[in-house]
Amino acid sequence: MTVQDDTTTETHGAVLTDAAASKAKALLEQEGRDDLALRIAVQPGGCAGLRYNLFFDDRTLDGDLTTDFGGVALTVDRMSAPYIQGATIDFVDTIEKQGFTIDNPNATGSCACGDSFN
């Protein structure tokens, strides 16, 4: 007799690097908030057709997929999940650039300014 475990957990497939998790956690601590998740959403817009929206959110939407990275909850709505499957969210702090970056293997192209993708 075999027993199957049907309690598989669906995940969004995005990864938050240690640097990004540390920066997000520091920003949350600076604000004195521990009730917010870092949400990434894909929305229509930009010259390439789709754009990322990365923000702290206190809402929980039906169908949200959430994964914890170093104490930071990364949340993706069910409609955005296929677009960010396998994406890596990093935080870069160099003399040339500072901020969160998204490396998405699903993006087939982006606009010249890098603000949107398709």
Results as ranks from 00 to 15, higher is better:
18 D>N: 02
18 D>V: 02
19 A>V: 01
19 A>W: 04
19 A>S: 14
19 A>K: 10
20 A>F: 02
20 A>S: 01
20 A>Y: 04
21 A>F: 02
22 S>Y: 00
23 K>A: 09
23 K>M: 13
24 A>T: 03
24 A>D: 06
24 A>R: 05
24 A>F: 03
25 K>A: 15
25 K>G: 13
26 A>R: 01
26 A>C: 03
26 A>M: 11
27 L>F: 02
28 L>H: 07
28 L>M: 15
30 Q>G: 14
30 Q>Y: 08
32 G>F: 01
32 G>I: 01
33 R>F: 04
33 R>Y: 08
34 D>M: 06
34 D>Y: 04
35 D>R: 07
35 D>F: 03
36 L>N: 01
36 L>T: 09
36 L>C: 04
36 L>F: 11
37 A>D: 15
37 A>L: 04
39 R>M: 09
39 R>S: 14
39 R>F: 07
39 R>A: 13
40 I>W: 08
40 I>H: 06
41 A>S: 15
41 A>E: 14
42 V>K: 05
42 V>N: 11
43 Q>T: 12
43 Q>I: 14
44 P>Y: 10
44 P>W: 14
45 G>M: 13
45 G>E: 09
45 G>H: 11
46 G>S: 13
46 G>C: 12
46 G>K: 14
47 C>T: 14
47 C>K: 11
47 C>H: 12
48 A>P: 00
48 A>V: 07
48 A>C: 03
49 G>T: 13
49 G>A: 10
49 G>S: 08
50 L>R: 14
50 L>F: 11
52 Y>R: 06
53 N>L: 08
53 N>G: 07
53 N>W: 12
54 L>T: 06
55 F>E: 12
55 F>M: 08
55 F>K: 12
55 F>R: 12
56 F>N: 07
56 F>Q: 03
57 D>E: 08
58 D>H: 06
59 R>P: 00
60 T>F: 09
61 L>A: 14
61 L>P: 00
62 D>I: 12
62 D>Q: 14
63 G>I: 08
63 G>P: 01
63 G>D: 13
64 D>L: 11
65 L>Q: 15
65 L>H: 07
65 L>T: 03
66 T>W: 07
67 T>E: 12
67 T>C: 00
67 T>M: 03
67 T>K: 07
68 D>Q: 02
68 D>F: 00
68 D>C: 00
